[in-house]
Amino acid sequence: MSRKLVGILVMAYGTPDHIAELPAYYTHIRQGRPPSAAQLEELSARYQAIGGSSPLGRVTRAQADGLAAELQARFPDTGFRSVVGFKHARPFIEDAVETLVAQGIRTVIAVVMAPHDSGSGIRPYFDRAAQAAGALGLTLRPAVSGWYRQPGFIQFWATRIRTLLSSLPLAESRRTLVVFSAHSLPMRVLDGDPYPTQVRESADLIAAAAGVGNHAIAWQSAGRTPEPWLGPDIRDVVRDAWDSGAYRNFIVCPIGFVSDHLEVLYDDDIECRSLIETLGGRYLRPPMPNADRGFISCLADAVAGSLGQTERIAA
């Protein structure tokens, strides 16, 4: 008797693999409206500043492979096949679902590589996956989202914060502010949305686990549109903390993200670092989760937990 096959659909925002793909990528983000020459030039300059391309695609594939391997080790009676689907780049979410069908898989577990839930930010991934799965006769298991409470996720960040703090002299550690950040969203989409509350709860859980008393919550990477976005912006938080005279070192923890990509490598490591160092301070950032084994294990915990009793995976 052949064992049951379960597909793991790992979804992420997506990124162009090469600068030449930027126009199509940006046009897709803008729902078919091509960017202006100035907008394209600015985005191209950001990618050039981080080496010409983002590692997001490579990292997401490594995360998907690691998750399937971890689940396979835990549930040997079930065969797991992972595939990556992106929101704004190929392979798209729909392409990934078709790949699973071609592999003979009829049951799919979907997970987004973002720890906090959001109606406008995360739910569209699951909506697209569900629509594609339904059209092809797939069974889509309960969505895996809002997994920021997973002990492994909390400990990942807490351990790395403690490591950075322990590398500083005691007097300097007392002048260090831990800044937890996540992607900003337009205020118009946040009425009743759990996202801001989950991010704040996440920051508080990590700070408590790390034994950190001095921490702040900030928002980053807001779109350049005239409408109001969720704040305060991370740069404003840094300036205010510096002006208070209490802090001279800043540990930036982008807990809303789980991999190295443009928003971390440029918005934090270049723009935020530049501000802090211009002020005269020290910028520190822990490594991102990427495909860290402990992080992958916590993802597997979330997948198993979302299904209720773990034996249901093999049902």
Rank of each mutant, 00 (worst) to 15 (best):
R46H: 14
A315F: 06
Q150G: 01
G52M: 09
A37T: 15
D269K: 08
P194L: 10
Q39Y: 01
G7V: 05
P16I: 09
D243I: 00
L5Q: 08
H18G: 02
V97L: 08
R239V: 10
Y195G: 02
Q309L: 12
N290C: 14
L71M: 11
G213F: 07
Q48V: 11
D191S: 09
E41K: 13
E271P: 00
D204N: 09
R46E: 12
P289C: 04
R123V: 12
I217T: 12
T78I: 13
A302G: 09
P196V: 08
S44V: 00
Y266E: 02
D95C: 06
G305N: 12
K87N: 07
S173E: 14
L177A: 08
A135H: 08
L177D: 04
I255E: 04
P142M: 04
A110D: 10
F92E: 01
M1Q: 12
A49T: 00
L168W: 09
S120Q: 06
L165F: 04
R312E: 13
P76L: 06
P228M: 10
Q31N: 14
Y148W: 15
V84E: 00
R235C: 02
R224V: 03
P34H: 09
G231M: 05
P124K: 04
G52D: 08
P226N: 07
F86K: 03
E70P: 07
A96P: 00
H116L: 11
P115C: 08
R58C: 05
L177N: 00
D117I: 00
M187S: 08
D127M: 13
Y25N: 09
H183P: 03
A222V: 03
F295I: 08
S274L: 09
L5V: 06
R141E: 13
A73V: 02
L279R: 12
V6F: 00
F92A: 07
P115A: 10
S82I: 08
I93R: 10
T176D: 06
R149V: 07
V212H: 03
R61L: 08
M187A: 11
G146I: 02
A38Q: 14
I270G: 07
I109G: 04
R33D: 10
V252C: 14
A135L: 10
S44Q: 15
P226V: 03
S306L: 01
M288A: 11
I234A: 13
D236V: 06
Y125V: 01
T99R: 15
F92K: 05
P228C: 07
E98A: 15
S173F: 07
S53W: 08
P286W: 10
V258A: 05
P287W: 03
S54Y: 11
S36H: 03
S184C: 01
R188H: 08
G294H: 03
A203K: 01
G308C: 12
E41G: 08
R282P: 04
